[in-house]
Design a protein around this nucleic acid. Structure first.
Lengths: 213, 213
DNA sequence: AGTAAATGTATACCAGGTGCAGAAATACTC
DNA sequence: GAGTATTTCTGCACCTGGTATACATTTACT
């Protein structure tokens, strides 16, 4: 495609990676709040000003890796095979993620991943930053539902917030268990069962909590 | 009940109110990010250190008024008449809120409320702070569902995140419309219809997006 | 009236983040 | 390959939110 990234571009990517790597390493070793951005900049051999040119805020040094997932649900809905229902596509995608131990499902127990997850869950400002991804994911998914499933705007938005909320709840549940010791393999069966239950709930509604029995 | 608030207690309340009032006034006039906490402290005739003794962070100067709503859904579920379904109680409560133009439903167009709402929606750090209320509301509601509706833990948590997400989506939708000009009375009928649609969706599920027709 | 506990203040300080002016590196042109 | 224009990086000063410390003031209790 682009046979020439160009020197400037390559250097930028290297600097970006250098800063990110230095940050993650230091944060994992000493804790997010115990390391200042100045220290990160120094470790990456870059000025503080340059660091902020690459990452808008300290939190982004950690969460920028998850930025791709912001539009993941929307992409899954758009890319589903013709005739397939959006919810089915999303469920299958989530189950695939579990099977492959995709970190986004919370079911990856590689030591680094687990430590990173735990750090995020234990750091309020990082959790807050993650919430913004959630909001973005809701918007993108709502749009995708509206455009590809012929869903009215309000319904699309409501469905999107429900779906995203449920997916995060599932992932958060898995992540929390692993972060505090359970192994991914031990959790797998339960995670699958929970996910299937959750998507069934999404599809069929909260009958248990509604009137007409 | 407590015939004696005590002088110390009364002074605290007055200081608390003085700081909050000064903050809201200044923020509405000049914008949240344009006013420093030092200015708020000065206007309230209090030291900066004291201000932070009353409010843990700048954002709380604005959102502390909404703290009560964090457990509102949980309280509604717990206080529902015997035999009533949780979802029904929540829906009725929300519809009552709309009728009474409760600001939490986004349907109050008193100028101050509208300006405050708009300020919050336009200020990322305030939105982030609101998200934390959402998380708290989810937890409290999940607990209430588990304890009073005999709902299994996972189901309770999933139901809670769905319900809270939907309520916030409805309120956010109303608030956004009002913040940008629509009147509460003009919006009322639509808001009611939307709420009923949303709660029906919660109860019956996202059939439109699921497979088995 | 006098003392202990709580609250408030002043000051200095730290960390995240930005504006600015200039130095250094890269890309473009002849 | 030299020279110039454009990015990018840097160092520095600065602002703001938030905290630690040490001291003064006020309230409550006897």
């Amino acid at each position: 495609m682009d046979g020439k990234p160009g020197l400037r571009e390559r250097k930028k990517q290297r600097t970006h990676a250098a800063i990110s790597d230095a940050a993650i390493t230091l944060f994992l070793e000493h804790g997010f709040n115990q390391v200042s951005v100045a220290q990160v900049a120094e470790a990456a051999e870059v000025s503080k000003r340059t660091l902020f040119a690459y990452f808008p805020a300290k939190e982004d040094l950690v969460v920028h890796r998850l930025a791709d997932h912001e539009t993941e649900a929307a992409r899954v809905v758009r890319a589903r095979p013709p005739g397939a229902a959006p919810l089915t596509a999303l469920r299958d995608h989530f189950l695939t993620g579990l099977r492959e131990r995709d970190p986004i499902t919370g079911l990856n127990d590689a030591p680094q991943v687990r430590r990173l997850t735990r750090m995020i869950l234990d750091t309020p400002s990082l959790v807050a930053r993650m919430e913004r991804f959630k909001t973005g994911a809701e918007r993108a998914l709502a749009q995708a539902l509206q455009e590809t499933a012929d869903t009215p705007e309000l319904t699309a938005r409501l469905a999107a917030v429900q779906i995203v909320a449920v997916q995060w709840a599932l992932a958060g549940d898995n992540a929390e268990r692993l972060a505090y010791g359970e192994s991914a393999d031990a959790r797998y069966a339960g995670a699958v069962a929970d996910a299937e239950h959750a998507f069934a709930l999404l599809a069929n509604g909260l009958r248990q909590l509604a009137p007409g029995e």
